[in-house]
């Protein structure tokens, strides 16, 4: 049958990848800031779908929880609180377009170059069904790696993890400090 010929795993991979890209473009092209956030949600959600597809359920759920459920909610929250009317619609001038396009294009090229230089990509890859799922699905290796133990003889991520955590803490405190602009408002003004 025709349907049997389709590799469903690849099909869904393409679907999610295209969704992610399309909504990423949507973020770029729309001028309404809330819609931007909305497209970003969908784009990140599609990325989470890719993770699930790859069997990395923990990472996928993480993506949903932290980026989609946490960061973006806060982002929209901030947008709603501060941008009543002036900033809701963002117009981009042509010269800005050119600048951003060249910068973004350069970054994309770099990314593609790095991606294609990974040797595993050029190897004959096994059929998805043959990959042992058990190894990818587990969260424990991630936890272990973060606490400094890696099962394959690499170095654990304890130190980077610590640095990132401290960095985030500093950022949070700094953001809180910056946001505290004391002012007195009376009902007269």
């Amino acid at each position: 049958m025709l349907l049997a010929a389709v590799d469903w795993h690849s099909y869904f991979f393409m679907l999610f990848a295209m969704l992610a890209c399309a909504f990423a473009m949507g973020v770029l092209l729309t001028s309404n800031i809330v819609r931007m956030a909305f497209y970003l949600v969908l784009s990140l959600g599609a990325t989470a779908g890719l993770y699930f597809l790859a069997g990395a359920e923990f990472v996928g759920a993480m993506q949903l929880m932290i980026y989609v459920g946490g960061t973006l909610v806060l982002l929209i929250f901030g947008v709603m609180l501060t941008a009543q009317s002036r900033f809701v619609s963002m117009k981009i001038r042509p010269d800005e377009w050119i600048l951003v396009a060249s910068l973004g294009g350069a970054l994309l090229l770099l990314l593609l170059y790095v991606a294609f230089s990974v040797p595993e990509w050029r190897m004959e890859h096994p059929h998805p069904a043959e990959i042992s799922v058990a190894e990818t699905k587990l969260a424990a290796p991630i936890g272990l790696a973060l606490s400094g133990v890696r099962l394959d003889d690499g170095i654990g991520y304890l130190f980077p993890f610590l640095i990132v955590s401290v960095h985030l803490l500093v950022v949070l405190i700094g953001a809180g400090y910056l946001a505290r602009t004391k002012r007195r408002a009376t009902s007269e003004n």
């Binding site: 759920a61 993480m62 949903l64 989609v68």
Partner: peptide
């Protein structure tokens, strides 16, 4: 889902959107 608890919490958090 192996990380079922986590998945449910994550997806439930999306309802707020």
């Amino acid at each position: 889902v192996n990380a079922g608890v986590f998945f449910i919490l994550a997806v439930l958090g999306l309802e707020v959107f």
